[in-house]
């Protein structure tokens, strides 16, 4: 009985993805008539062709790639620097700053839409790559994770390096970071995932279609502003392209996703 329930639920969780993949290889009428069938009849690449040649997809992909790479590298570097300082360096105002970062973590992103737009507008950054990247290149949660990690590793190696006269940044860069591979991999993956999927921030940062990232372009495509009607195979093909990179990373680095979630649970 338990087994049957488990299988039913597995189907409920996996089958939407099967539907997504199968229908993006179908013709429009086939997708409408047999949405549940996992086998396209006839199988066609026309949806993908139209996505690549009839929409802004090439631009969206390039923008997403650029923004995601810069965001991921930036977050990993900045979050681990801040996390290291909060864990190891005794500087004035450290406690207060940490409390502030905890408070910032609790600020819900959705209430910041208009405020962020106001700042970008005021700084003259609205509608630029800078607007897509800079406001979200540091995240409080990443700082928190890295601080927790650095507190869990012994100080002895760093102290030995200090004895040899290395400066703080030198110790951090060539001793601490190389020792922190597991935490860095986790942070990289989570940053990649959230940067690739980021949607609402793009709404308040840019309006020029040549600056759209994939989720933004996809949302536009679906809301009909490009006049494609209800062409589901095309939309599903575009959605599939948005899903694949994270799916690949998820399958390869599954352990890291799961471990971080558990850490999240424990900190509460």
């Amino acid at each position: 009985m338990r087994r049957v329930i488990l299988i039913v639920f597995s189907i409920a969780f996996v089958y939407p993805f099967v539907i997504q993949i199968a229908n993006s290889f179908k013709t429009g009428p086939d997708a409408t008539a047999h949405p549940l069938s996992p086998i396209p009849d006839p199988a066609t690449l026309s949806a993908f062709e139209r996505v690549f040649f009839g929409t802004g997809m090439p631009v969206w992909l390039a923008n997403s790639l650029l923004v995601t790479v810069v965001l991921t590298l930036g977050r990993v570097l900045l979050d681990s620097m801040a996390g290291y300082a909060l864990a190891r360096l005794r500087f004035r105002g450290r406690r207060g700053l940490f409390a502030a970062i905890i408070a910032v973590m609790a600020v819900p992103g959705v209430v910041l839409f208009i405020p962020k737009f106001l700042v970008l507008n005021q700084l003259g950054m609205y509608d630029s790559y800078l607007a897509l990247i800079l406001p979200i290149i540091a995240d409080a949660a990443g700082v928190f994770v890295m601080k927790q990690f650095f507190e869990s590793v012994p100080r002895s190696v760093e102290e030995a390096a200090r004895m040899d006269g290395a400066g703080t940044f030198r110790v951090f860069w060539s001793v601490v970071l190389p020792m922190s591979r597991p935490a860095l991999i986790t942070l990289t993956i989570l940053s990649f995932q959230s940067a690739w999927n980021e949607f609402p921030h793009t709404l308040v940062a840019v309006q020029n279609p040549s600056l759209f990232t994939l989720p933004r372009g996809l949302a536009d495509l679906v809301s009909g502003s490009l006049g494609v009607g209800t062409q589901f195979p095309l939309k599903l093909a575009a959605a599939l392209l948005a899903t694949i990179p994270v799916a690949v990373i998820f399958v390869v680095f599954q352990r890291h996703f799961v471990r971080d979630q558990n850490q999240g649970a424990e900190k509460g």
Partner: peptide
């Protein structure tokens, strides 16, 4: 069971629209 949580909210919304 966990996979849907890591995918793009926009992409998955498109799938559910269908």
């Amino acid at each position: 069971f966990y996979f849907p949580s890591v995918t793009s909210s926009v992409a998955i919304s498109v799938v559910f629209l269908f």
